[in-house]
Design a binder for these strands. Structure first.
Lengths: 192, 192
DNA sequence: ACCTGAACACCGTTCAAGT
DNA sequence: ACCTGAACACCGTTCAAGT
């Protein structure tokens, strides 16, 4: 039952956006009374957090699937994890916005959700460390470089789905092209 | 009247977040009937867009104020515009979220808002070009480098206010420190 | 032109019951 | 333990009036 409600919630967000996600709509989709969801989620914030959690799991899965395509090149794996991050955002923009939206951000008191988010960053961080060990990337400060890389792909993802880069950046192909260019620029640096 | 309603709306967002922004609350704050706002804004989306527009103007103002502190170093000006971007986000997190939130993103049909957003990116782009002319930054492709820089500061700003970097990154001082480190890493590159 | 108040369909949430 | 239905205070929005 809980899973059915959650599936319905994810489906609603995916199709109609976070604005359409209401407890009553979820209950209707699951063909139960408008009060039934309260037996499985404390309140609306808990439902939103559960949806966001599903999103983080999906993001991580896509990142892991993508880096399997290049098992032998640590730097390519690090980079591809970032490409997958951006690709996920444009493929599931509504879900991505819920994952980093204000309703989720307020939920500081949700350790499960925080753990899932941290898992994504942790994956990137591991790939970074393997690249450093492979002498492909500077060894300054792994945490600082990791935050920089995460910020770059996160900002790119957000601006893509907000349409700030134009309509071509909202397609997976266009967004991936931008992500390759941006990660390339980060690797090389702006300095001449 | 319109300005009074808009001021009230910005104040509500600033204090209680986008979730508290309702037409009726704005009307109450301005001491008019709950229908009065409709004479100045077509609907709620138009009010949200107007709030976002105010935000973009404030962001641009802070960026311009900050780069005046270093009139003679093109590269420092480019960098400081990015620092100001992140600083603005942590100083006005609720406003920043409205500027790039889903309610605003849907408003593709709002040319005034798009123009304001484009103005911010345009400012960064001009500073970048002046840095290139000053031989501080590679001349590859100005637009590509501009998108990369914008993505970096935007992602950093978003992750800071989402608390993903921990509580210390939500203070202006902490966020600026991160922004200096991240922009430095972008300038130098990750490659060893 | 600008403001008002009643009305409608929606929401989240509480509460008292039902099985 | 799980589900239900009535009820309450809120919303956005429409409409018919008022000045």
């Amino acid at each position: 039952m809980r899973q059915a409600l959650l599936d319905a919630a994810v489906e609603i967000v995916r199709r109609d956006g976070a604005g359409a996600l209401t407890l009553r709509a979820v209950a209707r989709a699951a063909r139960v009374s408008h009060m039934a969801p309260y037996h499985h989620f404390a309140d609306k914030a808990a439902l939103v957090a559960a949806v966001a959690r599903e999103g983080f799991r999906g993001l991580r899965r896509e990142m892991e699937a993508r880096i399997e395509r290049c098992p032998d090149d640590p730097r390519a794996r690090f980079r591809e994890s970032g490409i997958a991050y951006v690709a996920f955002a444009v493929k599931h923009p509504n879900l991505f916005r819920v994952m980093f939206g204000p309703e989720t951000a307020d939920t500081d008191a949700n350790p499960e959700l925080q753990a899932e988010a941290r898992g994504v960053f942790g994956l990137m961080q591991r790939l970074l460390k393997q690249s450093q060990a492979g002498y492909a990337i500077r060894e300054d400060d792994a945490r600082q470089i990791g935050l920089t890389a995460w910020s770059l792909v996160h900002g790119l993802a957000m601006l893509c789905i907000d349409g700030q880069f134009g309509p071509e950046a909202t397609s997976p192909a266009g967004a991936e092209r931008l992500a390759y260019a941006a990660t390339g620029a980060l690797f090389r640096g702006l300095r001449r």
